[in-house]
Amino acid sequence: MPKHVTFKQETVTLLGEEQKAGNKAPDFTVIANDLSEKTLADYDGKVKLISVVPSVDTGVCAEQTRRFNEEAANLDNTVVLTISMDLPFAQARWCGANGIENVETLSDHRLADFGKNYGVLIEELRLLSRSIFVVDENNEITYVEYVPEVTNHPNYDAVLEHLKTK
Score class of each variant (00 low, 15 high):
V5K: 10
K8R: 12
G16E: 12
Q19D: 02
A21E: 11
N23E: 06
A25F: 00
A25D: 03
P26W: 04
F28Y: 05
T29A: 07
N33G: 13
D34Y: 03
L35Y: 15
S36W: 00
S36G: 14
S36A: 11
E37C: 01
L40S: 07
A41Q: 14
A41T: 13
D42A: 13
G45F: 02
K46Y: 00
V47K: 14
K48L: 08
K48M: 05
I50M: 07
V53R: 12
V53W: 10
S55G: 00
S55T: 05
V56F: 07
D57V: 05
D57W: 00
D57N: 09
T58R: 04
G59Q: 11
C61L: 06
A62V: 02
E63R: 15
R67Q: 04
E70T: 05
A72V: 00
L75I: 02
L75P: 03
D76N: 14
I83P: 03
L87K: 13
F89Q: 07
A90W: 11
Q91A: 12
A92T: 15
R93P: 10
R93E: 09
C95P: 01
N98W: 06
G99D: 09
G99N: 14
E101D: 12
N102F: 00
N102A: 04
L106P: 02
L106H: 01
D108S: 07
R110S: 05
L111F: 15
D113I: 13
K116I: 15
K116C: 08
Y118L: 11
G119S: 09
V120G: 06
L121Y: 15
E123S: 13
